[in-house]
Design a protein around this nucleic acid. Structure first.
Lengths: 187, 187
DNA sequence: CACACCTATTCAAGAAGTTGACTGACAGAG
DNA sequence: CTCTGTCAGTCAACTTCTTGAATAGGTGTG
């Protein structure tokens, strides 16, 4: 149900093709609303049917044709209405690693350490990508300037959420490593 | 696919009925693997069929009968194997509020503030419940003592993840409030 | 004493999400 | 010159998840 609004929100950035959206979702919205290309294409189909977005076929020379989608006024209105109402469902996190850690007392400490370190390097990668997105948004301005001048701050705020989440993730991983190390050193 | 292991991990705490599990999932595992009672009952069915858990019917006087489930040795082994392999899929977060914030520049600031404050009070509630679980686990001991003495630290570590997550959530909310307030004060 | 909520689970239907393969042309690396 | 990768999608089959309701006695609230 909310994928719909995630797509509409992504289109606030301007016209995009399904393919472009699937890229955007990968790097930016993936943080809080993961979805596969297939889901996107289906959703775009539906949204176009409902008149919330408009499709326009772009003929291309040496590439497959593509359909570019734009928000309609109806789409904007729907999105605004959605954004002004409280979420019906609580935040859902699904993290396999946490299951593994929950049951990890039965596993040898070296293996646990590897799992956690893998997570850490992944989180660092993600943080790096977030930082690059941040630079691009700021475009040389300080954060203060940006927050005063920018038309929209929504994308920046959600980016901060992503950054904060990964940083917290890293702190937690450190904690796990230290606990595991200490226990491994005992009897 | 991983609900399976979430259930097995929950049964490490000891025998439980489907109903009890659905409660446990609500307060503790809900943090990283949400699921509805229906999913649990189906999963328990399957696990019992596969011999990873054992069912035992308990006749009750003034209550409906219940089936209590225990891990079998096969279940324990399967869970151990799972816990020792790297997660195949990355952490997935689904947070409607973030969509609303992403598109929130079109909404009036007072409404945004309300949404964020609602989230904050919800997060505080969750933190409170986590703290109570923490007290129960520590059972009067200091954290250090607990980490040395306890048979299992997995549940404690995932609890810390939940606490850290909600705290980070609150920090982010504060940030959003301050940005929104500052922008509302401008032209 | 009425009404709502708790225990304990099951059923059915539908929506949402996942997986994997297919098309077909071009661009760049080795 | 082959091979991999990118662009821009579509299709089908499948699994998982969500929603809502049914059952039915018991316990607590106002």
């Amino acid at each position: 149900m909310s994928l719909k609004y995630a797509v509409l929100a992504a289109l606030l950035e301007g016209e995009a093709s399904g393919y472009e959206l699937s890229k955007v979702f990968d790097v930016s919205l993936a943080n809080f609303w993961p979805s596969t290309p297939q889901q996107l294409y289906r959703e775009l189909e539906r949204l176009a049917e409902d008149g919330l977005i408009q499709a326009r076929v772009v003929q291309q020379e040496r590439r497959p044709n593509k359909r570019m989608f734009t928000l309609t006024e109806a789409g904007r209105a729907d999105l605004r209405a959605f954004s002004a109402t409280p979420p019906r469902r609580p935040t859902a996190i699904r993290d396999e690693l946490l299951i593994k850690i929950q049951a990890g007392d039965g596993v040898d400490p070296a293996t646990v350490r590897e799992l956690v370190e893998e997570r850490m390097s992944w989180a660092r990668g993600k943080l790096g990508r977030y930082q690059r997105v941040r630079e691009r948004l700021l475009a040389g301005r300080t954060e203060e300037e940006y927050l005063r001048e920018a038309d929209r701050v929504g994308p920046y705020l959600t980016l901060l959420a992503g950054i904060g989440f990964e940083e917290e993730n890293l702190r937690w991983c450190e904690r796990v490593l230290s606990v595991v190390a200490q226990r491994a050193a005992l009897p």
